[in-house]
Design a protein around this nucleic acid. Structure first.
Length: 462
RNA sequence: GGUCGGAUGGCCGAGAGGCGAGGCUCAGGACUGCAAAUCCUGCCACACGGGUUCAAAUCCCGUUCCGACCUCCA
């Protein structure tokens, strides 16, 4: 059972064996950012959770094509452009950059392809043409194009809702829509708005069209996994399904949704302020620690954010890091990463990261014990298994992306501290503990922490 | 109104019929000149009320509270 990856599918509401459509290959489409504001930790959690999925699939031998789009044209971006008094495309570029920086800081791998909505207008127009031609969509003549949802019997099966149970929007305008629940594939241009030409008039895409068009462009009519946050199930993913299946494409095989980061029990939103933006939190903890925290909860569980919990998680991580550092010193080489059976079993069960962390804790314990006993084989095994696990979680401290800058002053620093440690050692040798402790305290005041071990004194910067 | 989650020890956070997840904190012990690091021991929890069962945190019924979505959302 441990050899078979099982994943939860929102569409069936159960965990089932993962069977790729094509042997040894996986196509994943993740709804990425609508680039209208700087990312908060909830946005980044989504990218992170799917990054772990992708790394796990890759590590277990799949050839993964991972698409994460950028939606760079939508209502909010236009509003923001007015507010910030810069062009809409400058808004999109600015926040796309902010997202890229955040992904990089948290070691979220770049997707195989990262398509932008504005780069796929042709594909969107083609899709609409197809939908109009087969009677699924209609253009009422005002420049809008709508999808007629009643024509698709499978509409709302992902969210398990009934069309007639939906509360219809109070401001639904039936001037052009046949049904208030029909949604806009395309919106007619308003004066001053950016627009692209179509056979039905100039305009811009509605929110959902771009994902169907881009998923089709890069992954074809059917693909393995479509992901996103829980809040995208309805309407975004339902509408993607509606468009794509109306076009005759079978679309995604498995739907995966990550849960939110909450604050005080509530879903994060802009009303909670900017303090939980990724770049703000990175002023307090390292990227690798933020990642360890955000990735540590199961992807389908809400993660209640607090700085206390973040700090606690960082303490735990530093312990693991400390072991790897000591093991590396003892072994005289960086351990290679290997994947242990326990870790595999946990990850294969719907990416049970919390269980995987328990596995890491056990390996850590035996590794530390082996370190004390100078059992090199066991130290090497433990360090390798831990490094292997950390690399899947994207938290490998030896990953160059997390490397602290090793400037030329590092050697000088090392020399200076060694000098102080030699003085301390001399004091200890003559049992002048007042002097030796004074040196230790002074170093501690500078942030240099000392540990006396059987093989000498180690130091690190806290 | 419809749909979907959740409530677990001081705190975080898994599990989903039996044999104490794990982490953090705290207390004690080992090691140490003292620290630090590490290891060991301790802290036997599952919102409430019924029920099923040899056995329920887990299944069933009911209740309370919290949250999410219903065309802006990761």
């Amino acid at each position: 059972m441990s050899a078979q990856l099982r994943l939860y599918n929102t569409a069936t509401r159960e965990v089932a064996d993962f069977k790729p459509l094509v042997a040894n290959k996986v196509g994943i489409y993740l709804c990425g950012a609508t680039v209208q504001a700087a990312p908060h930790i909830g946005h980044i959690r989504s990218g992170l959770n799917f990054d772990i999925l992708r790394r796990w699939l890759t590590a277990t031998g799949y050839d993964v094509t991972f698409i994460r789009n950028v939606t760079d044209i939508d209502d909010k971006i236009l509003h923001k452009a007015v507010h910030e008094e810069i062009p809409w495309w400058a808004v999109a570029a600015k926040y796309e950059r902010a997202f890229s920086d955040a992904y990089k800081a948290l070691n979220v791998l770049p997707p195989t392809y990262e398509p932008r909505a504005t780069g796929h207008m042709t594909q969107m127009v083609e899709l609409m043409q197809r939908l109009i031609d087969n009677g699924s969509a209609y253009a009422p003549g005002n420049g809008d194009v709508y999808l007629e949802v009643r024509k698709l019997k499978s509409y709302l099966t992902l969210s398990n809702q009934k069309l007639d149970d939906l509360q219809s929007a109070e401001d639904a305008d039936l001037t052009y829509k046949k049904d208030p629940r029909d949604f806009a594939l395309w919106k007619a241009a308003k004066p001053g708005d950016p627009s692209w030409p179509t056979p039905w008039g100039a305009g811009r895409p509605g929110w959902h069209l771009e994902c169907s068009a881009m998923a089709h462009a890069y992954l074809g009519e059917s693909f393995d996994v479509h992901g996103g946050g829980l809040d995208l199930i309805f309407p975004h993913h339902e509408n993607e399904i509606a468009q794509s299946q109306s076009a005759g494409w079978s679309f995604a095989n498995i739907w995966m949704h990550n849960a939110w980061v909450t604050a005080s029990g509530e879903k994060m939103s802009k009303s909670l302020g900017n303090s939980l933006q990724v770049h703000e939190i990175l002023k307090k903890v390292r990227g690798i620690e933020l990642r360890w925290y955000l990735g540590g909860a199961h992807y389908r569980s809400m993660l209640e954010f607090s700085f206390d919990a973040l700090e606690e998680s960082s303490v735990n991580f530093r312990r693991i890091e400390g072991f790897l550092k000591r093991a590396t010193d003892l072994l005289g080489a960086t351990p290679e990463g290997i994947i242990s059976a326990g870790f595999t079993e946990a990850m294969n069960e719907d990416l049970a990261v919390p269980t995987a962390l328990a596995v890491i804790s056990e390996i850590l314990k035996s590794g530390n014990t082996a370190l004390a006993a100078n059992d090199l084989d066991e130290v090497k095994r433990a360090a390798s298994e831990i490094r292997g696990a950390l690399s899947i979680l994207g938290c490998d401290p030896f990953d160059p992306i997390f490397a602290t800058d090793s400037s030329s002053s590092a050697e000088t620093l090392d020399g200076l501290i060694s000098l102080a440690l030699e003085q301390r050692q001399a004091a200890r040798a003559r049992k002048d503990f007042a002097a030796s402790d004074a040196i230790r305290d002074q170093l501690a005041a500078l942030g240099v922490v000392i540990e006396d071990t059987a093989s000498g004194t180690r130091w690190s910067i806290s």
